[in-house]
Design a protein around this nucleic acid. Sequence first.
DNA 1: TAACAATACGAACGGTCGTACGTTTTGTTT
DNA 2: AAACAAAACGTACGACCGTTCGTATTGTTA
Lengths: 218, 218
Amino acid sequence: MSETTTDGRVQRGDRTRRVILGKAVDVASVEGLEGLSIGRLATELSMSKSGLIGAFGSKEQLQLATIRAARAIFVRTVVEPALLAPVGIDRLRALIDAWLAYSSDRRFPGGCFFARVGHEYAGRPGAVRDALAAVDQEWIGLIAATVAEAQQVGEIRADEDADLLAFDLVAYLDSANLRSLLTGGFDVYDHARRAVDARLAAAAPELRADPSPDGSPA
Amino acid sequence: MSETTTDGRVQRGDRTRRVILGKAVDVASVEGLEGLSIGRLATELSMSKSGLIGAFGSKEQLQLATIRAARAIFVRTVVEPALLAPVGIDRLRALIDAWLAYSSDRRFPGGCFFARVGHEYAGRPGAVRDALAAVDQEWIGLIAATVAEAQQVGEIRADEDADLLAFDLVAYLDSANLRSLLTGGFDVYDHARRAVDARLAAAAPELRADPSPDGSPA
DNA sequence: TAACAATACGAACGGTCGTACGTTTTGTTT
DNA sequence: AAACAAAACGTACGACCGTTCGTATTGTTA
């Protein structure tokens, strides 16, 4: 049963959905998920409003699908390439570097998609907010887990709180993203890089072994 | 000329404008400056749409006035109380503490007004974006200037880059604001506090003076 | 070929948006 | 009291919003 039948009809529908979402993520990264209007999207894609909404059922479903599509792009652009780096501090830096490139290269025209729409729905309960909160938690959780891995291989001090360190790092990234968009300049990404470097240097294990419980240096 | 005549008519207009803006900042902190609709605002204030828009001329003027009103509230809530603290690290901490209270107490129902609408317009050139960028720069500049003052009184190491330190601190605050709204919890403010403490501890001058070029304390 | 299913369409719906115009009300100035 | 000025109103406008309905088109299955 369900022998991966490639029904040409649903196949066409899937393709349409992909095309729509490709445009939707770009629009939403600038105008937000509320400003993402059916009519405008339909016009830009040269299709009918009814055809477009018919592919998703309702605007909220379109919004949720847009979030999933943006997440997939984020994973492909930031996470997967960074996971090629070896476990430890290298992988952590790879994630951070990939994120900075993702933001400064304007993978989405409005900067980080999730920063834009996250703030849009942060104060409004509902399915959209929940979905965005989940993605945000995934991202911070990934950073924290990567920090923990680096601790296990001894590249980050064991007494560092992984969640705290993840909080700091993500904060630098988000701040750079916003300020770059606001000012139009890119210098602030260097601020973020220097902040990351300093924070990771502080979290690095002491090179000269500190005095053990008994028998200490002169 | 212009002997501070208190014209009852413009006085009434000013009062109306104040009432409108009082509601506008609250609405905009949740729905954004775009979602701030004339009709809804008029309904909530039991006045006519035409009367409301007539008080400002256009929606963009209303938006700009709303930003100025939010800035005034921010100055009164965060900046002015903190400026009572003595120059130096105390004043810096007072600013940070006041900001955390301003955010976690939900002085605006949607959290920090400027985080919400800053992201909304960060990617869209125009007068609104420029106004928001200016306020943001004011705030970061104030933090940086306060850091510089603390350096002059010897409470922060002179080799710290004031702009860099300000960037880090503001990043912690913004991150806590967003994540608190997204999750509905307030634990993340403790993360921010611990991040601030650690960052300021790292920026504090060494207690045991290192050997200075000539004649220094034993 | 006939019956069925999924997609996309055009047209229309009620509702809200920002704005403009003319009128009424309220306050100030001759 | 008369003339004027500012504020607030009611009404109406065209544009767009998300959604619904019936229909044509395209592909699959009997």
